[in-house]
Nucleic acid binder design. Structure first.
Lengths: 344, 344
DNA sequence: TTTATTTGCTTAAACGTTTACCTAAATTTC
DNA sequence: GAAATTTAGGTAAACGTTTAAGCAAATAAA
């Protein structure tokens, strides 16, 4: 049976035999080495094309001790921020003719540590990552870095690792969001966040508190509620209970999936947004503008952050390394005001 | 300077030296070969752990001619369907201790063909893919398959390639969606779709037409409008013009980003959904239920499709290959009725 | 002319595994 | 107790590249 089994793979040996030159000549010709004459180069390139030669990446990586591959390590993917960030990353990876391995930690430290241990093998030339929210012990990250693998953090950075970081101004945008609610006459603003506390959520909480304090409002721990970090009905019930007891007139939801949670909780409680309660959410969902009512959002520059992170990594990778730890870039988020925080 | 340069990498040679055995013994011990005594195995495993030995994947892949890696080739990623599908895929990839390379075609045949040409190198053991909408020439796919690389299609399948396919019932769900609109008394239903026509959109169009025909309504080409396949303001203008001239009382939007387009077009034209015009959209966005008004959707089993596709691929990969071309799985989509198609 | 340099290619080792084949000792079988 | 088998390892080749080192012929410099 003439089935599709891995057949007649053409490699450098094949080309060498066909052209009656050495394997080294093939290799050098294809890499456009100065060692090889123009005419020979042309002949090699031509027959390589003719025979559909494609270099074996594993042989090449083994020998060169570099893989033309990076890892993208993120908590989750079904999230507008991360999928848009990947788009940004991909735009650079593609341009650099690199390859991207994708790893989801599901926000678990254990998985993250395990993945990092694997990456220790030399599988990738660099890592772009958003750390898991419950990662406290950072030894796995330090270990990988010590092996010489460059890491660039984006969004959920790890402050204790000296390397490039692409962040957005979480503190400030939470501050602005809270200010906005205060200006809309909210007196009792709750922050709906998630447990585990990645540092960005910490920053958002602090921005929120700063805005309150500035207005002479003493932040109350009862106004901060921590949900599970996934979209679940339990969160809705939990939030309803919070609203019932604390009776906030404004809510800041710190992560994307809490938008739906908040809206559904309000709907079930027959609370009108924005009349009874005003809502702002950190989200990149394009549907924000067609929600009921349109949702005021803190929009993160996801694509740009991914792109910038990748750019930095490749700048470090190609040519001489740069001083990664000095790159600490903050791209601004944007408060997009819509009907959920007032009459438009 | 004691900086983090690729240092003291511990490999099998190191272990062999430390334990005073041959490299072969190390290799066999770690793979739990029958050739090695239990005591030696333990010693090897122990020191490997102690010295943080992690096998070099490139050496291993080169020698074994298999990579423990698959490719995920999809048109785009900032789309709920695809990101949820990736979640499903990842659940299996992780379990099988495989690695996943991600490639975005941006719906371009040229990119897709180029990627497939690269994959010819043996970089991956298998491919999970959703084909680009403008892919007509399928030689690149055939070539890869002929090299012995198994391919599983999901969602946007290529019917002419004999291999496993995971689809959803596009024809039927479009039929059901149209029926639903008809039952809600729509008389003039438009289909808003995209140019390029992947086969699934073809199926959706046919389901739509079937439902109309059944009700004695002759499908009119004027009722089918093709937008650009990305979220753009031009699409909104284009759709507004369509609504203005054709005056549909029902709209079926065949891809996710057209939901926002449709809602915004209606809003700008001061058309009330569902009173003036009813809307159904194929989308997996969780915000559908909190839109203004909540959107009736055709919800695809994205996670399950990704998972199933990966399962099939790995069933083929591990153990004896299966008859891939006989696997043609159809997972049902679900029509979730909400306020956008009537009074709830 | 002789010597130095450049050009264009070859040889062979290396990257870190895996595995077919070999071997010597220990054990079993008869 | 001799022969057969099993056990526990070792040797070396192979996977497909890249590259340092070498070398003969051609060219340039002296």
């Amino acid at each position: 049976m003439t089935d599709g089994t891995k057949n007649n793979k053409v490699n450098m040996k094949t080309l060498a035999k066909v052209l009656n030159v050495s394997i080294a000549t093939i290799s050098k010709a294809l890499r456009d080495s100065h060692d090889i004459g123009d005419e020979t180069k042309q002949r090699v390139i031509e027959t390589a094309r003719l025979l559909h030669y494609v270099p074996n990446p594993y042989a090449s990586s083994l020998r060169k001790r570099s893989s033309n591959t990076i890892a993208i390590v993120i908590p989750e993917i079904a999230d507008s921020f991360f999928s848009q960030a990947i788009n940004g990353i991909e735009s650079i990876v593609d341009q650099e003719k690199y390859h991207a391995l994708i790893y989801l930690t599901h926000d678990s430290y254990e998985r993250e540590a395990q993945m990092f241990n694997d990456l220790t093998s030399g599988r990738v030339d660099g890592v772009l990552m958003s750390v898991a929210s419950n990662t406290k012990d950072i030894k796995h990250i330090q270990d990988l870095q010590q092996m010489g693998v460059p890491i660039v953090f984006f969004d959920r950075v790890c402050e204790d690792i000296p390397t490039a970081k692409i962040k957005t101004d979480d503190f400030n945008s939470a501050y602005m969001a809270t200010r906005h609610l205060l200006e809309q006459d909210c007196k009792n603003i709750s922050l709906v966040t998630i447990e585990g506390y990645p540092s960005i959520l910490q920053a958002r909480e602090e921005g929120y508190k700063k805005a309150l304090t500035e207005q002479g409002i003493k932040p109350n721990d009862n106004n901060v509620i921590s949900c599970a970090n996934k979209y679940t009905h339990d969160n809705i019930a939990f939030l309803k209970q919070h609203i019932d007891t604390v009776k906030p007139d404004g809510i800041i939801a710190t992560v994307e999936h809490l938008a739906t949670t908040t809206y559904l909780a309000c709907e079930e409680m027959k609370l009108n947004i924005p009349d009874d309660i005003k809502v702002v959410c950190f989200t990149n969902q394009i549907t924000a503008s067609i929600l009921n009512p349109p949702l005021t959002t803190v929009l993160q520059p996801a694509y740009e952050m991914g792109r910038k992170a990748a750019e930095l990594l490749f700048r470090h990778l190609s040519g001489r390394p740069i001083q990664m730890e000095r790159e600490n870039i903050i791209l601004p988020s944007k408060l997009v005001v819509r009907a959920s925080t007032g009459t438009v």
